[in-house]
Design a protein around this nucleic acid. Structure first.
Lengths: 114, 114
DNA sequence: CCCATGCGCAACCGATTGGTTGCGCATGGG
DNA sequence: CCCATGCGCAACCAATCGGTTGCGCATGGG
């Protein structure tokens, strides 16, 4: 463990993947439609199929989508599990840090007198 | 509203800021120590003061730190409020998307017979 | 007072990112 | 069967990122 995360390792890939608005839009479409191909996604986005494919690769590395080959199509579906993990990680971290900051503030008040 | 976020706008800057491990480390130090300067941070990190300053600028744009000038030092403190907002945003989004995916799955099961 | 300390700005650098075009290959429907 | 469709790979491009070095300015403690 790294002392700053207390057992939960930071989900870099998910944060990076979610940092791009077009990747969030792709995830949104995948959730709304229940799945899509790079070609169909490119049709409703302002970028080419190849660019979409690269974004899908990023989302795949983050575990946020999974690809299923169906004939000559490759259908992508959203997997929200890493998102849930990241939410919990972030919540835990925020709480730890807040606790620490509150402890410091209490110490400061005690030192200068209430 | 953008239809995908339902009133909560996506905190791009926070996600991007949190996507970098060294920026998380800086936040961790700030929370642990209650504050620090770019110089003191650089002392405990494998990068130069100027590099730290750039990271602090990113964190500042995300609202995750605030700078206070004290004499010739500039002290940075962590502000976890945007982190909390982002956590809630992410949680809401995950729930919406999960609901949508479950609805789709239910429809599929209904169509092919239970 | 004056100099060490701390900061900001700017230029520069290599690597990565986000996008494009172009091409070749597989595959399944008319 | 064969060709339109869908995908993957590769090269290329500009812009951004993360980092460095170098310099100049303010400031406050000995």
């Amino acid at each position: 463990m790294t002392r700053t995360t207390e057992g939960e390792q930071a989900p870099d890939d998910v944060l990076v993947a979610l940092g791009d608005p077009i990747r969030r839009e792709i995830l949104a479409v995948l959730a709304r439609e229940g799945g899509a191909t790079s070609t169909s996604l490119a049709a409703s986005l302002p970028i080419t199929r190849q660019a979409v494919a690269k974004h899908l690769a990023v989302l795949d590395r983050a575990g946020l989508v999974r690809a299923h080959r169906a004939g000559r199509e490759v259908r992508y579906e959203a997997d929200l599990q890493p998102l849930r993990r990241t939410t919990r990680w972030m919540d835990t971290l925020a709480t730890q840090w807040e606790d620490r900051l509150n402890a410091i503030k209490d110490l400061a008040e005690g030192a200068t007198g209430p």
